[in-house]
């Protein structure tokens, strides 16, 4: 049984409202929204396909019931699209992310630039609800927590690496691994050369059996 369009529309309405509300707190993105004015882009993450339509400094989110073609289509798993939106890679490396992009490349470039310039001022959003001082306190605490988490994560990675390589001798050091990998590469090449040489000798033997 098909889903009632009203349910789908209520979802797209909620997403649209949330996105447009959030965009108000990213003034740097406004220029890119203006450049995308009139653009229609399909985002296909089966089974939920949506259409982004830019206009009047807003993004309209539609379920894809309209049969007319979009200017560009981006297809991929939700995870791949999320990785694409959050990665720092250039647009030329997108093929590695299992994301398929079709259509007008200029529109895609503009969308990519728009996503990359998103810098949402969450503290300002929060300040509208809680007032400036609590928002600043929560924002500062959040930033401190994020810095601490990042630092602790890096420190933990470094300590685990050092213990496994230097103290426990469970895994080789990175340099040792690289040297070993180089030696394997050289061996592979040598074996290939040897195989080619043998192949050549066998061929020569077949062509002149009396020599």
């Amino acid at each position: 049984m098909a889903i009632d369009p009203v349910i789908v529309s209520s979802m797209t309405a909620a997403i649209e409202e949330a996105i447009n509300k959030t965009l108000q707190y990213s003034p740097a993105s406004q220029k890119h929204i203006d450049q995308l004015d009139g653009a229609v882009i399909d985002i296909c993450t089966d089974p939920f396909n949506i259409r982004l339509q830019f206009g009047n400094q807003r993004i309209f989110i539609h379920h894809q019931t309209d049969e007319s073609p979009a200017q560009a289509t981006i297809s991929g798993s939700p995870l791949a699209l999320l990785r694409l939106a959050t990665s720092s890679e250039s647009l030329t490396n997108l093929g590695k992310n299992s994301v398929v992009i079709e259509g007008d490349s200029e529109t895609i470039q503009q969308l990519y630039a728009f996503v990359k310039t998103l810098d949402i001022d969450y503290e300002a959003m929060l300040a509208e609800i809680t007032g400036g001082i609590p928002a600043h306190f929560i924002g500062s605490s959040f930033r401190s927590l994020r810095r601490w988490t990042k630092s602790a994560n890096e420190s933990m990675e470094s300590n685990i690496e050092e213990y496994l390589q230097e103290e426990g001798r469970q895994v080789p050091a990175r340099v040792e691994t690289e040297i070993f990998a180089d030696e394997v590469d050289e061996l592979t090449l040598a074996v290939d050369r040897l195989a080619a040489r043998i192949e050549l000798l066998v061929q020569q033997k077949k062509e002149s059996p009396n020599t």
Binding site: V6, V8, S9, D37
Partner: peptide, 15 residues
Amino acid sequence: RLWKRFTIETSGVRK
């Protein structure tokens, strides 16, 4: 509002 929203979504209207 949702009935009308779905109508807009189906319209295919462009800039």
